[in-house]
Design a protein around this nucleic acid. Sequence first.
DNA 1: CACGGACGATTGTTACACAATCAGCCCGGC
DNA 2: GCCGGGCTGATTGTGTAACAATCGTCCGTG
Lengths: 221, 221
Amino acid sequence: MPSRRPDPGPTSAAVLAGALREQILDGRLAAGQPLRQEELSERHAVSRHTLRSALATLVAERLVVAEPYRGARVADLDDDALVALQQLRCALETEAVRLLHDAHGDAWPTAVRAPVEAALAALEAAEQAGDPAATARAHAAVHRSLVDAAGSPRISEVCAGLDAELLLLLRGVRPHYPPGALAAEHRAYVEEVRRGDTDAVRRHVARSTALLRSGRGAPQQ
Amino acid sequence: MPSRRPDPGPTSAAVLAGALREQILDGRLAAGQPLRQEELSERHAVSRHTLRSALATLVAERLVVAEPYRGARVADLDDDALVALQQLRCALETEAVRLLHDAHGDAWPTAVRAPVEAALAALEAAEQAGDPAATARAHAAVHRSLVDAAGSPRISEVCAGLDAELLLLLRGVRPHYPPGALAAEHRAYVEEVRRGDTDAVRRHVARSTALLRSGRGAPQQ
DNA sequence: CACGGACGATTGTTACACAATCAGCCCGGC
DNA sequence: GCCGGGCTGATTGTGTAACAATCGTCCGTG
C-alpha cells in the first residue's frame, strides 16, 4: 500500500554508523575504548574510507571523540559533561515550554497534547515491563515530544541530537524509582509546564541531574 | 617565541573545509549552487575522498545540504529557517543570561565583563570602519562573548556552531543602522541583561529577526 | 500522450599504496 | 643515574584508480 520506496536504501556508511551507535549505547563498545580503523573496518566488512565516514557522523553526535593522527575512542563522559549537557537541555526545553505557552496558553489543542500523552503512556508501559533500556528511551521520548510540540524545528533538532549522548550518560545508572514513579513524575511535570511554569523545567532538570550524579558515583557494586 | 608547533598541522580536509566555508560566506559559492565532487576536488587539488570529508563537516555546520546519491549544494535559507534559527539562539542566550544572573547577580566580575566589553568595542570599531562583513562578524562575536560568559560549555558550543549559518543568513542584508547605532544598541542590551532581564533577550532577537526579514525581502535593487 | 527502458552523469564504495604523524624504545652523553 | 635524540613499528591521513549503485533524462513504443 505505501509507495514502493522513496528510500534508495541507506548508504553503507549510515548503516555502519547505526550499528556502531547501537554497540556503544548497549556497552559492547566500552567508554574510552579506542576505535582502530583497520580492525573495525575488517570486522564490519567495509572499506576503511566508509568506516572513517561512519566515525565522522558519530563524532558529530559526540558518541565518539577523535583527534587528528591520534585516533578515535568511545566518548567517556564525566560529571562535568553531564551538567553541561543538562544545562543545554534546560535551555532548549525551557524555551520550548515558553513557546508553547505563548501559542496556546494552558489550553493545548489535542494535536499538541496527544503526542505527549502517547509518550507518557509508552513510558509507563516500558517502566511496567521492567526494561531499563526501553525505559530510558521512553523517558527521552517524553521530553522530545514536549520539545517537538513547540514547533521550533531547530530547537527540536538540537534536542534530538542530544538523545544518543543522554542514553550514553545513563548507561549503568540504576533506576532510583519504583515502577510507575517515573511516569507519574513526568505526568505531573507536563501538567506544570502546561500551566506555563517555565521554572518547572529547571527544577525537573536539576532533580534529574542530582539523581544521575549520585547514580553514577558508584558504578560498581 | 611561541612554542614551536603543538599543532601537527591541520589536516587537508580541515583547511579545505575552511576554504569552502570562506567561499560560501563571501558569496563566491552562491546559495543553492550544486557542489560537484569531481569539479571541486580537481579545482582544489585534493582527492575526491578528502573533498567528501570536507563537505561532511560543512554539512554538519549546515552551510551545505546533501542527500545521498543526489549531491550537495550550498544551503539557501529562507525566512522559515531564519525564524527557526533565531528561536534557537533565543533559547541559548536566554539561558546564558539566566545562568549569569544566578551566578553573579547584576554585579558581574571583571573576568566576566571584560570580554563582553572588548567585543562591544570591536563592534564599534568595525562599524566606524564601514566594513559590513567585519561588522557582521563583530556583531556575532558580541553575542558569543555574552553566551561564553555564562560558562556553560555545551551552550557555548552550539552557539558557536550557529555563527557561520548566521553570517550566511546575513549575506546581502543592507545595514539598517547609521554607524555606531548597532554598537550603542548592544551596549544598552548588555546593560539590560546584566540586570537579569531575560525578556530583553527575546525582545532583542525579535527586533533583529524583523529587521533581517525586511532586509532580505528585496535582495535586488 | 502515457509509459517503460536505455544511457550518461554523479555519487557511494572498494582496494591498494604511500606520506605524515604518533608512541614507545633503545642508546649515548652529561 | 638520568636526560635528550634518533630509530622503529603502528596508526592515521591522503592519493589513485577502478567499479557499483543511483539519478535524471531522453527516446522509442503503444
